[in-house]
Amino acid sequence: MSKLSIFMKGIIKENPVLVFALGICPALAVSSQAVNAVGMGLATTFVLLCTNTVISLLRKVIPDKVRIPCYIVLTAAFVTITQLIVKAYVHPLYLALGIFLPLITVNCIIMARAEIFAKKNRLFDSVIDALGMGLGFTLALLAIASIREIFGNGTWFGIELPVLAEHNISIFMLAPGGFIAFGILVAIANKVSNGRAAKLKESGCARCPAATACGKGGAA
């Protein structure tokens, strides 16, 4: 696989949020404003980049039996670093993301990329994979947040838009609006890919690449 196709597949063909439905919780929770969505996306990309790099470097050192606990510890460590950096330099974002910043630790995208890609690929490929997946995650978040902020609040990145600012559909700023905006985007992704995306995420935990990581291949 060429370097470019590794990078691009995370953005479109295997978009973690819209195609695999991974990391939905942060995608919905921080997407009422575009700024927060981008902040969350970049923080997750940074963590993903660090974990993919280290796991790829250590792929011959980590014993297969205890790889999941190793991944969890690594992720938690990098999340703590990210948390401290964000708290020190981008404090408003730290307050806006709140509990969802430490929750990057349990974002399934990170575990999934470690399990699917980083543990069996070379360093450079894993770095590209992390960048592609992180960017795909960020763009998906930005898309959800744009729908919610433009229609719910009449602004985009805090810039007031004409007409829309006077005619808010305020439900988009609330929790139900998050589900609706995400539902619309997944439906569009299904339509564009002619149902290929829908097939990938059929039925329960089996669709989740982290299912093998979870233990017994899921319950559903």
């Binding site: 609006g177 995400f182 997944v186 299904n190 149902g195 995420k201």
Partner: peptide
């Protein structure tokens, strides 16, 4: 067809 599966579930959750 494009609403089958996840999207229709998400709309139900929204309600």
């Amino acid at each position: 067809a494009c609403m089958r599966g996840l999207p229709i579930a998400l709309f139900s959750v929204a309600i």
